[in-house]
Simulated scan of single mutants.
Amino acid sequence: MTTSVIGSAAPASERGDMSVEEVLALPLAISVATAARAFKIGPDKAYRLIEEGRFPAKLIPLGDTTKVATASAWEALGLH
């Protein structure tokens, strides 16, 4: 059984969520979609939070794309 980042009755793998182990194995910068998955929100909500300036992790603008600092996501999730 895989441990979920935020508690739930069903295993993380059955819900499509990321386990703590998966989150801690992420590279230094991740896509907004991956960060959204770790935060258990959809990508649309993640982009909305970014537009509102309320996304819970540090953003890294890279040309036409935006990445999320993994260490900042860990901190927001209480993992670091």
Rank of each mutant, 00 (worst) to 15 (best):
W74C: 06
E21R: 15
R48T: 10
K45Y: 07
A25M: 08
Y47I: 12
K40A: 13
A69D: 14
S13Q: 09
G16E: 02
V32P: 15
A38G: 14
R54Q: 13
T70W: 03
T2P: 15
L28A: 15
P56V: 03
R15P: 04
L26D: 06
A69L: 11
L28M: 11
T2Y: 09
K58S: 02
A9H: 09
I60G: 00
L62G: 05
A73V: 11
D17L: 13
A46M: 03
A57K: 03
A36V: 12
E51V: 08
K58C: 03
A35H: 11
V20L: 04
S13G: 05
E75K: 11
S8G: 09
G78T: 03
A46D: 02
A57L: 05
A9C: 06
E21K: 14
F55H: 06
G78A: 02
A71N: 12
L62E: 10
I50W: 12
M1A: 15
R54Y: 07
E75H: 14
P61A: 02
G16W: 05
K45I: 10
L24D: 06
A29Q: 13
V20I: 14
A38V: 04
A25E: 09
G42S: 14
R15H: 05
A33Y: 03
T2E: 11
T2W: 08
E21M: 10
L26K: 04
R48L: 12
P43A: 12
I50M: 13
V20Q: 06
P56N: 09
S19A: 05
A38H: 08
P11C: 01
T65K: 15
S72W: 00
S19D: 08
I50F: 10
